[in-house]
Structures are given as C-alpha cells and as structure tokens.
Nucleic acid binder design. Structure first.
Length: 770
DNA sequence: CCCTTAACTTAGCATGGTGTAT
DNA sequence: ATACACCATGCTAAGTTAAGGG
C-alpha cells in the first residue's frame, strides 16, 4: 500500500558524505572545521551506500523543449541581490495571474485528492482541522470513511472502556487535587504510609493514556499549571587561596567576579577551543568586563595569563569526585533525587508530569558549534530577576529564592513553557518545558507523524506539480520547484537566512550558495551529476554527489548564470515563500514534513525489504538497525567516531577469533564423538554425539551474534541512529515491526524512548502502515 | 508587507552511572 | 572487587515555523 508512494529509495543512496578535503576549495570556511574532518571517511560510506543503494532511477526525461521564454528567466544582470530581484518579482505578479489557471487547477486537485469535498458528507473536513486526527468517538462511529481508520488506527471498543475508566480516575484525581496542596505534599514526603500512596498515584499517572482522551480545540495548551520554578545554578565557590593565578609570571589574587570567569577558561584549558583566536579574543573582552578597574589595568594580555594551577585544581577535583566513597556518592544521588522530586515535576491539568530541563543553565563560556563568531563569550549567570514564570492564576505560584523576585509571573495557557529567560549571547529566549513523555509533547509528536502520513497521500501529486514547475516561465517558480525537489529527494532542511557574523556560516536548501554545488554534465558513467558540499546545521558537512534529472540540471545551470560563488543559488526563494507555497499544497505542510515523511517511509520500506522471517532475534535487530541507518544516512546524521572505537573493535575481533577457535575445537569433538558412536553404537555414545552437536550449535550461534555485533558497530562508526529514531521515525512503524516479528520492544527502545513513545507502543498493532 | 521574535523541534557531545568481563 | 567499555542522560546550541508589529 505504501509502495506506490515511496520513491523507490533513490533518496537513500544519496546521503553519503565524501572524503575530506577534495572539494574544499569550494568551502569558504575550510580550515575551520578540522575537528569534523575525521568524519569524512569514505570507503566505509561507499560500503554503506552499496548496501542500501537501489536503482537510482529517475523517471525518464521527456525531451526538454527549448523554452522560448528563456529570456524571461534570465537574470536581469549580473546582480544577485535578493532584494532587488524580489522587487522584480513584484512586478511580475501580473504574470502570476497568468499562472492562476495553473493554480486553480491545483486547487481542484487539492479538493479531489486530499481535501474532501465539504458539502456532501456533512463531515467536517478533517484535514483542515489540525486537531482532526485525534480520535473522536462520535466521528468514528458514525462516519466510516477509509481515511479515518487509516489515520487513527482507531479501536472503538477499547477506547470506550478506557474512556470510562479514565473519567472515573480523573474525577478521583481531581478531588484529590482539591485538597490543600501544601498539606498533601508535607504528608507525603514525611511518613511512609503516604509515600506508598504517592507511589500508587504515580503508578496511576504512568498509566495515564492521554492519547485516548480528547484534545482541546481552542488553541489553549492547558487549563491548570502549577510548578515550583526552576533550579538555579550553584553559586560560585571561590578558589582556595593556595591555588594561584599568575599574570606575567607573578601570582595575582583576583576579585571574585574576575576569578569566576577565569575558572571558566581554566576548566577548558586542554580543549583546543582555547587556542583559537576568536575564542580567546571574545573571552578576554568579556573577562575584562568583569574585572575591577585595577585588574583591568594590570591584565592586558591574555597570553601572559597562566591558569595552569586552576586547571590542575579542577582536574584534581574531578578525580576526587571519582574516588568518593559509595556513601558519599549515594548521598549526592539522593540529593539529586530530592531535587528532582521537588522541582522536576509539575501539575498540568490534573496530572503530574515530568519537566524536561528544570535546571537553569550555569554560567560559562559559550561554545558555539563549528566556526562560531561568538565562541568564548561569557554566558552570564541567570538570576531570578531574569526569569519569567508561567503558571495558572489559581495555582500556587513558585517562590523565588529568598530576597529575590521573578522578572514576571504570567498566566499564558497558549504556550507550553513553565519558565523562560533571555540568554545574553544571541539574545534568544530559553525555556523550561516538559519532558517528551508528557502529554503536551506527545500530542505534538503524534500530530507531526499524522501530518507526514497525510503527505504520503498526496506526495505524488506534489511531485508531479514540482516537476511541472521546472518548466515554468517564472524564475521564482522554477527555483521553488528545484529547491523542493532537493528537499524531497535529499531530505535537506529548509534553510533560513541567518544574520551574518552572528552565527556560524551554515546553510540549508533555500540558503544554498553557488559555491555549495558543482555541476557535472558527465561524471564517470553518470549524467547530470550535482555535487553538494556545504555545512549544514551544527556545522555538519553535507557532501553528496547525485545524478539529477536533466531538467533540474538545466535549471541549475540557469540559476548559476552570472553569479559569484558567494551569491545565493535560489535568489528568488526563501523559506517563507516556500512554506507558503507548501501550505497551499496541503494543510499543515512545511519543508520539514518532507524530512519526517521520507525518513519514516524509508524505514518502513527498508524494514519490509530487510526483515527475514527465519532470522533469529539478533539478525532481526541488525536488520532494524540497518533500516534505521538508511534513514540516518538520508538525513545526514553524523557523529564523531567514538574515541575508543578502534580499540573496542579490536576487542570484539579478539572475541570473535576466540569463538572461532572454540568452534573448531567443538567441531572436532563432535567428529570424534560421531566416530566413537559409529564404532560402538551404544546409547552412551549417541548421547555424547547429541551433546556435542548441541555445543557446536550453541557456539555457532554465539559466533554469529558476535559477528553481527561487529558488522553493526562497524557500519555505525560515524552514523548516529539516535536522532532519527527520536525525531523522524514514526514510532508506530517500529512497534508494529516488533510485534510482527516477535522482537521485544526493549531491544529497539530504551526506557526513556519507551516513555516518550508510550502512545505508539500502546496503540500500534502489527499491521500498522505508516 | 517585510522583518523580528517567540515558541518549539532537532542536534551532537560530554559525562557519569551501570553493567560486564576479569 | 575492580577496571573498563558502553550507553543513557543531560545539556544546550541550532534549527524551523508562525505570528506579530512597524
């Protein structure tokens, strides 16, 4: 069923990253990413690619007719100033009108293909309502449209029962919450009896199936919210006097504020960050700001600063921490647990929910990723006065630490955060929000996958359209169409514009520059190859060579005309334009939905392809990991090879060799036993043969397991599976797969992941189709 | 509009606890 | 019991997107 919608995996083969420096010249920022370099090992990748590569066939190109209107498409002049071009677009709007016949057609398609006709069935058009996918018993009972079942996997009976139970429970809890909270808390933490009660309640909470409840439709995120506020970073503890800081070779006692900032630097001394010019410059500037005027006049050169002793001190400290006795460690653990119990949860709409990050980020030196212009700047300490608290009016408001106040307390139930503050490096806002296992996050996650599944239903239509748009007379339409093709085929990110000089220079699809692609009319045995080489999110390099359709290729050539290498490839496109267009194609469609969709559909396809019924469990898991890996490659989820990789690989190999020896020994014994049996034909020897046979079998299995493990690890060397598992793969696919093949879910999801995906684990059956 | 910003998701890395082998 | 590898977890940076305001 999904087959026709998938794209024959062509995208899977594309995520390969190439080797190191070859294409570096095209990189403005080449030298700055040394630390990432080691990732770009390719023979490994080639192997990987071969494994999951499939016919990379594009549909046959129709012979491209010469477009007579090429003139129109030409860049007006050498300029690539986006804004100027944009004005031209405005002028062109008249032309757009011509296009309306075009877009009208699309609208109609839209109605037929996906947006159901509203009038006939008198059913509220669900896809237009974002909340529509939530099970609504009424609907499902009366309206039996295919899509309902498909979208909801709805099991009316079960839900009904649960609902009733739920209702009772909710009432119960509600009554409980009516009690004086204060009294309750005290009671619970004090005596044992009530702590049991607490446990019971907790268990109840853990079973809460929010996914079987209806969701609010008015845009509010909650009705009641109570929490204790954030936990602040521990205050600064001055250095012992014996630990000295030296300036120009002479010991110097620093004022507390200056000393604190100095310790941040001292702690990082053996990180290569501290050798970078920008880092040092930024640090020094910010550090001086914390100094007394006296210090400021003395300390004028960072190179004359010696943080060595401080650095040693911290190393000793962490060593001491490791050496702590069990009891001490236990004590710390308990303290952490207490903090978690007190501050790690909130009450949201009658349920106790886990908070994601209840600790405020401690001060320190900012470490951006990649080549960040602000690296080394001081991330200042956050005080209560910086914090905005969000909670219910009728809740017990969190108390600020004695002698302080909050910046503000607000009661905004249109947002999900409990507290926020503005960070001083980028001026962006940081939030305290709930854990992924919470209702509020889970619903959103579920919704994300439902949107992706809706895309599945209309992706053919959308693809047909962008292919059509490659021929448009309008430059902006063509650019949009080619960009969308990349986003779809290569799972590129949208690519917002970024303020230059404020962040690392990274790009996504819409912000690709001329320097990031190379065109090869012919490369080896392939035609129309595009080579991508750019730094994406987190300054992770994306390197890929892929053959594209001729028309795309020609368009790219056109886009490149008269441009400099630092000019935008899609000078008439940005994420806002693209997303507006996507919104018109499907309700809720944005660029990132393609990533979710393609990731999930790829997993499903790969699982189908790779799973083999007579595999044992480890082999099945290997298949799963391979499917997962295909997605990670598609999404370019890389990691630095683990530091201990080589060594642990060696260890594993040793184990394998040992096993092999064991095996041949066991085989010999088996042979001997057989011979023995042949000679004597007695019961005893027969039993011995059986015994030996079993032993051989067991060892074979163990060997197999080890080999599988080795393969898996090798293939995973620089690929991170976690990100896609956590963010892109509809968990119901995995759950269904586990059920189908009898693989315990614990083999696929760890505890945290099971908590996050509880909804999927509960609702997906073995026949679930994404 | 067009730009800014709030809100929320996605991302890789450090680290420290845990489980396993010795 | 100890050492060590591994993995879960926390952390926080860096994206995307929609909405709001000038």
């Amino acid at each position: 069923m999904n087959g026709e919608n998938g794209r024959g995996d062509s995208q899977v083969s594309c995520g390969t990253k190439g080797s190191g420096r070859s294409s570096e010249d095209s990189h403005k920022h080449k030298d700055k990413h040394k630390e990432k370099e080691h990732r770009h090992k390719d023979h490994k990748k080639d192997k990987e690619r071969d494994k999951i590569k499939h016919s990379n066939s594009e549909q046959k190109e129709h012979s491209e007719k010469k477009h007579r209107d090429k003139e129109k498409l030409k860049h007006s002049d050498g300029s690539s100033d986006k804004h100027r071009e944009k004005h031209k677009d405005k002028e062109k709007r008249k032309e757009d009108r011509n296009q309306t016949s075009h877009s009208d057609k699309h609208k109609k398609e839209k109605e037929n293909g996906y947006v159901r006709e509203k009038s006939p069935a008198a059913i509220k058009s669900e896809p237009e309502d974002d909340n529509s996918f939530y099970p609504s018993p009424k609907h499902n009972k009366t309206s039996k449209r295919e899509c309902d079942d498909e979208e909801f996997e709805y099991k009316p009976k079960k839900v009904k029962v649960e609902h009733d139970k739920k209702a009772k429970k909710r009432k119960h809890e509600y009554e409980e919450d009516e009690e004086d909270e204060d009294v309750k808390h005290k009671k619970k933490t004090k005596d044992k009896k009530s702590s049991e009660g607490k446990k019971a309640k907790k268990e109840e909470e853990e079973k809460w199936k929010w996914w079987e409840e209806e969701r609010s439709t008015d845009g509010s995120k909650w009705r009641f919210l109570e929490h204790k506020g954030p936990v602040f970073a521990p205050s600064y503890e001055p250095m012992p006097d014996k630990v000295k800081f030296y300036y120009d070779g002479k010991p110097m006692k620093l004022s507390a504020p200056a000393e604190e900032v100095a310790t941040f630097f001292a702690k990082m001394l053996d990180h290569e960050y501290t050798t970078k010019d920008i880092f040092r410059k930024n640090f020094f500037k910010d550090w001086r700001r914390e100094m007394t005027s006296e210090e400021k006049s003395k300390i004028t050169d960072l190179n004359k600063c010696d943080f060595g002793e401080m650095n040693e001190y911290f190393k000793a400290q962490s060593e001491a921490r490791k050496q702590m006795s069990k009891e001490e460690k236990q004590k710390i653990k308990e303290e952490n647990e207490r903090l978690l119990q007190e501050y790690g949860f909130c009450i949201m709409d009658n349920h106790k929910e886990r908070i994601g990050n209840f600790r405020i980020e401690p001060p320190g030196l900012f470490r951006g990723r990649g080549d960040h212009p602000k690296m080394g700047m001081l991330k200042r300490r956050i005080r209560p006065e910086d914090i905005i608290i969000n909670c219910s009016k009728d809740s017990k408001h969190p108390k600020p630490p004695p002698g302080t106040k909050w910046k503000e307390i607000r009661h905004d139930n249109k947002v999900t955060w409990l507290a926020s503050w503005t960070e001083n490096i980028q001026g962006s806002i940081k939030y305290i929000m709930l854990n992924p296992s919470s209702r509020i996050k889970g619903e959103k996650d579920w919704q994300k996958y439902e949107t992706a599944r809706r895309l599945k239903k209309c992706v053919d239509r959308i693809r047909a359209q962008y292919r059509e748009d490659w021929k448009s007379k309008e430059m902006r339409i063509r650019q949009r169409a080619v960009a969308l093709y990349f986003i779809d085929k290569l799972a590129l990110r949208a690519g917002n514009e970024k303020e230059e000089g404020e962040t690392a220079d990274t790009v996504g699809c819409c912000s690709l520059r001329v320097e990031h692609i190379k065109l090869y009319p012919k490369l080896d045995d392939q035609e129309y190859v595009v080579e991508f080489d750019f730094l994406g999110k987190d300054s992770i390099r994306y390197y890929n060579k892929i053959p594209v359709e001729k028309r795309v290729f020609k368009n790219l050539q056109l886009f490149l005309e008269n441009k400099q290498s630092e000019d935008d490839l899609f000078d008439r496109l940005n994420t806002s334009i693209l997303n507006k267009h996507l919104q018109e194609l499907m309700d809720g469609l944005t660029a990132k939905v393609f990533r979710t969709y393609n990731a999930s559909i790829t997993l499903q396809q790969q699982l189908k392809e790779l799973s083999c019924s007579d595999d044992n469990i480890p082999a099945k898991i290997l298949s799963y990991n391979r499917a997962n890996r295909a997605v990670a490659i598609l999404c370019n989820h890389q990691r630095a090879p683990p530091k201990t990789f080589e060594k642990s690989m060696q260890n594993l190999q040793t184990k394998i060799d040992e096993k092999q020896n064991q095996l041949s020994a066991a085989r010999k014994q088996l042979k001997a036993a057989k011979a023995d049996h042949k000679a004597s034909h007695d019961e005893k020897s027969k039993k011995a043969v059986e015994l030996k046979r079993k032993a051989v079998q067991r060892i074979e299995e163990q060997l197999m397991k080890l080999q599988v493990q080795a393969t898996d690890r090798e293939e995973n060397k620089q690929i991170a599976l976690g990100t896609s598992k956590l963010n892109y793969l509809d968990p119901r696919i995995s759950v269904a797969w586990c059920k189908k093949w009898g693989v315990p879910i614990e083999k696929i999801y760890n505890k945290t992941q099971r908590e996050k995906f509880a909804w999927a684990i509960d609702m997906a059956e073995k026949d679930y189709e994404f």
